[in-house]
Design a protein around this nucleic acid. Structure first.
Lengths: 397, 397
DNA sequence: TAATCTTTGTTTATTCAGTAGACAAACTTT
DNA sequence: AAAGTTTGTCTACTGAATAAACAAAGATTA
């Protein structure tokens, strides 16, 4: 009816929609909060807030929760997000295991299930994935909005349309996972790259909550990077940004299966760590083994971590130069070794990064641990839900 | 009075402001255009468009320009941007010369002046800069809004507040150029990094007009990069993004004066080109000399361009992997040699870049030539003007 | 304890921008 | 000349925000 191609048109419906979202957002962030405080924080008129709040209550998005402390006058009625108004199902589809969680619309984990996978064929994995989702879905408490969305993170190249073009470590090519899931569940579906999801998870619920410019490094078998720029996930033209694993840090260095040479992930990933440890006489060790050895002051293990940390530092220095970020967060399976890697990472960065950019940046470990990725998916699910639902309900009823 | 900290509040004033801007934008882009067409394109009601248009005419932003062709009914009255409602002064402050242009608010160049500089001290340059601006300012035609803004691009690190922290090739540190200019002219001032300005210039007026994701490489003495992401200039936390010149492409490679090692600009800038040519026995040649020689099939000169192009390709491959851009534009003084560099750049990229990302990207030469940077500044000036003025006038009168 | 002051939240009258639709003007087609 | 189209303006209406009055419920003070 309106809002064509470019530059949406503004009318009072849009105004109401935006203000309602603003009120809801304020409650989400500052709950418990009174109507009066919302008016003060947002700058909206008290009457406007009252009327929007009563709509939100009717729609079960929020509810009152008794009175708060008086500050010298009538005691305020506090408002809370109605966390149990709906639930999400979010899955981290890894190479060796699949982690699925159910959360409420506030992002609290209600239930989770993890299964191991050895056969990575599309057929087998999708079977496992479906039964995992079915299992979570069956046990969802009843609620006004039910399951509000299902999302899956995959270690691969995903288009903005949710098609998996390539997932090398799964051996997948051109898999229409989003369509498959929609076909089966008829619910809003999200399929997203694993590094992007991890970045968003840490941004919304984790170490990056107060940074608008943050770079999340997912260092596992390979390296993927998720970019939060200007407070939004940056995906590039078709969704393929963040292929930092294939950034050349040694011109004409080692040949990568991607066709490039000297790729960062050949020197600084979990794979690189394991290879380096073999070269130092530590064969068939897992990361956990190596961490244990290094903690017991094994010289070879220590050397390996120092070497990998140094290479990580080279790439991170590049990241700092390129983005002038506020925060760089390291996640993925390699994060297990962070305490051992950090000294040499920091040494390299301090030596090599330009002062101005270095001064601005904080280097941190992901603090949601194995949940970074699933919770990113959860955040996508919830955002999607509020964006589409808050408005339609208010117009529709 | 409203619209506090986060999440602006929406009311009818905002609606009008946005719709008015939308109408103006539509006229800028599609002029000459009738009221009826604007209504159709924007989705706004015919009456709304009529009333907004009549305000814009009162404010001299646009004017009617006779009737257009009938399409089977009453002939439309065509609307045009009133290009001469105001003028900008935009300056590209280079190491060897200063280029200043005056443009109208449509970005047409009205006048220009270029001067050479040999003493780069702040004192001397600011003197030259002031007299250059004075000269342009004096000759500005009289107009409703006069000089709407003054902007300067500098080859250095500029904060979001317009302070020049460091301009190594000028030998400047901590120069409050924005304040100095405001003190003198009491007009809206912009001070911006040269690569950022170049990127914006090509984005608005040049080769990148239809790309929302574009990377501009300013290859001169060093390398700077301007990032247009999601249709906006990306500046990072404090404005220091795009320091691609100091991206490591050879770990522990050549030492750079920035403190890092193996920086891209040591291998792929104008400086690198000149050094490489000396190593090939071509001493004291300018780029122009080398281009001439190479065009006459001088083997050494050809080799030099091939080598530098190859290194450029390495960095551009990284850029393609990192951003999944729609377009990469090469500008700066090195662009003079583009026809000679392109073959080896393209060869490297085709060999090394990941297919998905490679398929999306177009590699182009800047097409505004020496005006990329000044016109970027012009675009900033104009945007600033419309953002602040369109609205205040309509509320204020 | 009573009177007064504060804060919270609702209600009412008002303002203002966009919309739909009628209408007039100007043109084309039959 | 009559009928149909397109453009642009005008009028009545709608709906959302606002300011201000008001009611409710508490704190403070004498």
């Amino acid at each position: 009816m309106s809002g064509d191609m470019k530059g949406q048109t503004w009318n009072q419906h849009v105004v109401k929609k935006e203000n309602k979202t603003l009120v809801l957002q304020t409650i989400k962030e500052k709950a418990p909060i009174s109507r009066a405080s919302i008016a003060q924080v947002t700058g909206l008129n008290k009457g406007t807030v009252s009327s929007l709040v009563s709509e939100l209550i009717d729609e079960d998005f929020i509810h009152e929760s008794g009175t708060g402390e008086s500050s010298g006058g009538r005691r305020p009625v506090m408002l809370l997000l109605n966390e149990k108004a709906g639930f999400t199902i979010s899955v981290d589809l890894g190479v060796n295991k699949i982690l699925g969680v159910m959360t409420d619309i506030s992002g609290n984990r209600i239930m989770e299930k993890e299964i191991n996978v050895d056969d990575n064929s599309v057929y087998n994995v999708s079977d496992d994935l479906f039964s995992l989702i079915d299992h979570l879905k069956e046990q969802a408490p009843s609620s006004r909005y039910g399951i509000i969305g299902i999302g899956v993170a995959v270690p691969g190249v995903v288009t903005t349309e949710g098609e998996i073009l390539l997932a090398p470590n799964l051996g997948w090519k051109k898999v229409q996972l989003k369509d498959m899931l929609y076909e089966r569940y008829k619910l809003p579906i999200i399929v997203e790259n694993e590094a992007n999801a991890g970045a968003y998870g840490e941004f919304i619920y984790g170490a990056g909550q107060n940074s608008k410019e943050l770079i999340y490094i997912s260092a596992s078998i390979g390296i993927g990077v998720g970019l939060i720029l200007d407070g939004k996930l940056y995906k590039g033209l078709r969704g393929f940004s963040g292929e930092f694993g294939h950034m050349t840090i040694e011109k004409d260095g080692l040949a990568c299966r991607c066709g490039n040479r000297g790729c960062w992930e050949l020197y600084a990933s979990e794979n690189a760590l394991l290879e380096a440890s073999e070269q130092h006489g530590l064969k068939n060790h897992s990361i956990t083994d190596l961490v244990t050895k290094a903690e017991m002051r094994d010289t070879n293990a220590l050397k390996v971590f120092e070497q990998i940390g140094d290479y990580l530092g080279v790439g991170i220095t590049n990241i700092i130069h390129i983005f002038n970020p506020e925060q760089v967060i390291i996640g993925g399976s390699l994060a297990e070794g962070i305490p051992l890697l950090l000294p040499s990472i920091k040494k390299r960065i301090k030596q090599n990064a330009i002062g101005f950019n270095l001064d601005d940046v904080h280097l941190n470990e992901a603090n949601l641990n194995k949940y970074s990725v699933v919770l990113g998916i959860t955040a996508f699910n919830i955002e999607n839900f509020f964006r589409s639902t808050v408005k339609e309900v208010s117009n529709g009823v």
